[in-house]
Design a protein around this nucleic acid. Structure first.
Lengths: 133, 133
DNA sequence: CCGCATCCTTGATGATACTG
DNA sequence: CAGTATCATCAAGGATGCGG
């Protein structure tokens, strides 16, 4: 049938858009770096390679599970390398790849924008909250 | 008591870090623009003011609830204005504020970075997935 | 030391129905 | 048209204990 109800058209449009989102590069990257611990881990690694326990100490609010999960995702996407030294006890070293290093300036740009505008955001927020009880 | 168990020290460090996260401008901004619909709504508004229904049609995958929630959050943080024209039926127009407009170049930078590196990310992902069954 | 497996809680998201 | 209210769902995140 060539004819669709309005509801069917909405469903089709929604499905098409969701597929588009999965392909859109900007959205994929935003999903990666917007994920809770990614920017924090990357900024630690930007200073140089770190062992697992060092990262864990530097990010005390991240549970071991989330830290591992984040590092695995970053490894999968090619941002960090994971290097295991088979000793007793084991030593695992994480470091940025060239791709990971190219991400650093972008994060720096975001940080700079944030520093420059956070006051304005807070002011807007205070105004908004004050205007409605 | 000046002495703490290791567990207590971890708790304290974690609490301190969580407080820091709430203040860190970069993290706050990342939380805003990383939220699912924000970048999409802002990029639509970057082309000019839009009515609620126009945004809804442009983003078919966003439920009315999420669209409203996103717009409210953006209004609160001072990125968009909401203008109600009392007629029958009502017309509501959303537009970027100057602050919102200053965010556009940052989003553009993210988009450009994504376009330039997405292939490498996908390649790394494929390599990783292929290396473990 | 590193980190996987398991269980569990909770907040984010979505579908649906209704109103000024 | 532009939402709000309510309920249902679900996956992210966290706590814990064990294993290599």
């Amino acid at each position: 049938m060539a004819t669709m109800t309005a509801a069917q058209r909405r469903q089709a449009a929604k499905a098409a858009f969701e597929e588009y989102l999965q392909v859109c590069p900007a959205h994929q990257v935003l999903e990666i770096i917007g994920s809770k611990w990614v920017s924090l881990v990357l900024s630690r690694l930007a200073d140089g390679p770190r062992r697992y326990a060092e990262l864990s100490r530097a990010l005390p609010a991240a549970s071991a599970k989330m830290l591992t999960q984040t590092l695995r995702a970053l490894e999968r996407d090619g941002f960090v390398t994971r290097e295991v030294t088979p000793a007793v006890p084991v030593r695992v070293r994480y470091a940025l790849t060239p791709l990971g290093e190219r991400l650093v300036p972008l994060l720096a740009a975001i940080k700079q924008w944030a520093d420059e505008h956070i006051d304005e955001i807070h002011a807007a927020r205070a105004r908004y909250d004050a205007s409605r009880p």
